[in-house]
Computed example of a mutant assay.
Amino acid sequence: MLNFPSNRVGWDLQAVGILAVLGEGNIKINALLICLSRTCLLPHLLPAPQGLLVERRARTLQAEEDIIVRSIFSGNVIDGLGYFANILHGPGDGDYVCRVIDLEENPDESYETPCFHLRNLSPLNVIAVSSFLLSIGLVVWAAVIQDGAAVVGIILMSMASPLLCVGSYWKLFLPVPRGQSLHVPKGDVIFRTPSECITVVHCNEAVARAVYFPPRRLHYVFKSWLGLSIGGIGGGLTMIGGIIMLSNSTWTMQAALVVAYALLNIAYWFAAVISLRMPRVFWHWRIKAAIQETQGESYLHVLWLAIQASRTTSWALQGDFIPQMDYWKDWLAVAESHIDDNLWDYQTALQDAIRRQQDKAAETFNRNTSGNQT
């Protein structure tokens, strides 16, 4: 027969210490967004606040690697598809797909702010403010029932969060494009993914600089290592003291804290999922994106579609879009002269280019052989 404690005193709720440090992965995923908002400086309960501790500060926003973004006209080149470009349209996942994207600033919105900014009512801000109010409520409840250990423990755990955030608190500085008030040249960009998806983006230079070539360095409020060290040490010691105090609080407050931390863990788990799947919930942007995809039959077909979309072949010679062989360069020259011809047989043209190069090679070989014999 199974036996269970007959009263609540028999139940040991030391799990509150575990719940206080559980969910570190969710905090790490959202650490940059948490430390971007001023709400991170509010004293509030945060599951696994140690997830905010980093060995070194992030220097840039996360970018999609293995992609080289090139400006078709200005010559700008950057490694990695930037964070905000990923938010707008992503790198493209299809095999042998040509994507044509039109980006333009929304004329119905103000031009006094950068193209991207964090929403005031983003999920992380709502959770932080709710946790701040929850922490106040728990402190008042603990004081009413005269649970001194709980009062001190909740205050210490609530202070651990802002202390740990101090060293990583940063601000986002992006250019403010004014594409409608000034004459801005074309800033079309192009990039290719490992899955042979080529994306051609039509936009002006101001939008291109804001989305694809912005300054990526993060501007930390406390720039010296001292701020990071003091925040980390102070926050870590405060968290340890808080866990000790909470472990010695009354059964009632431990039960309340178990529920509170469980709810906060669930909230931050959802926030982590939403930040990856639905970035618009976190960010507001005033750039409209119209995306058109065409499935190609082969990489050669995708390349031809991209040439027609970009109206030039200059970009194809600058990167790894084509092998550096003479017959490919010959094919590109012919392709540019047929950009407006939708019936042009690009496959036969490549075969003809290969044949011409072979004939030239054979002619050169025969000439050299005849000269040597002579």
Rank of each mutant, 00 (worst) to 15 (best):
A15T: 10
A20M: 13
V21K: 08
L22D: 04
E24S: 15
G25M: 10
N30Y: 06
L33W: 06
I34C: 05
L42E: 02
P49E: 03
P49D: 00
P49Y: 01
R57N: 01
R59K: 14
L61S: 08
A63S: 14
E64S: 08
V69I: 06
R70V: 02
S71T: 04
I72C: 03
G75A: 07
N86S: 11
V97L: 05
I101V: 14
N106L: 12
N106E: 06
L121D: 15
L121F: 15
P123E: 00
L124D: 03
V126W: 11
V126D: 07
S130K: 09
F132S: 14
W141M: 15
Q146Y: 09
D147V: 03
A150L: 07
A150P: 05
A150F: 04
V152Q: 07
I154R: 05
M159R: 01
A160G: 14
L164E: 01
Y169N: 12
L172C: 08
L172I: 06
F173K: 10
P177F: 03
R178N: 13
G179L: 10
P185G: 15
F191M: 04
T193N: 12
E196D: 14
I198S: 00
V200Q: 03
V200T: 03
V201R: 01
V201M: 06
E205C: 05
A206S: 15
A208G: 08
P214E: 08
F222N: 08
L228S: 08
L228V: 09
S229N: 07
G231C: 10
G241T: 06
I243V: 15
I243D: 03
M245P: 02
L246Q: 00
S249D: 06
Q254Y: 14
L263Q: 11
M278L: 14
W283A: 07
I287P: 02
K288Y: 08
Q292I: 04
T294F: 06
G296S: 08
L300M: 09
V302H: 01
W304V: 00
S310F: 03
S314V: 02
W315R: 04
Q318K: 15
Q318C: 09
F321S: 00
F321A: 09
I322G: 02
Q324C: 04
K329T: 03
D330C: 11
A335L: 10
D341G: 12
N342C: 11
D345A: 09
D345T: 03
A349L: 14
Q351P: 03
A353G: 03
Q357V: 00
Q357W: 00
K360C: 04
E363A: 11
T364M: 08
N372A: 12
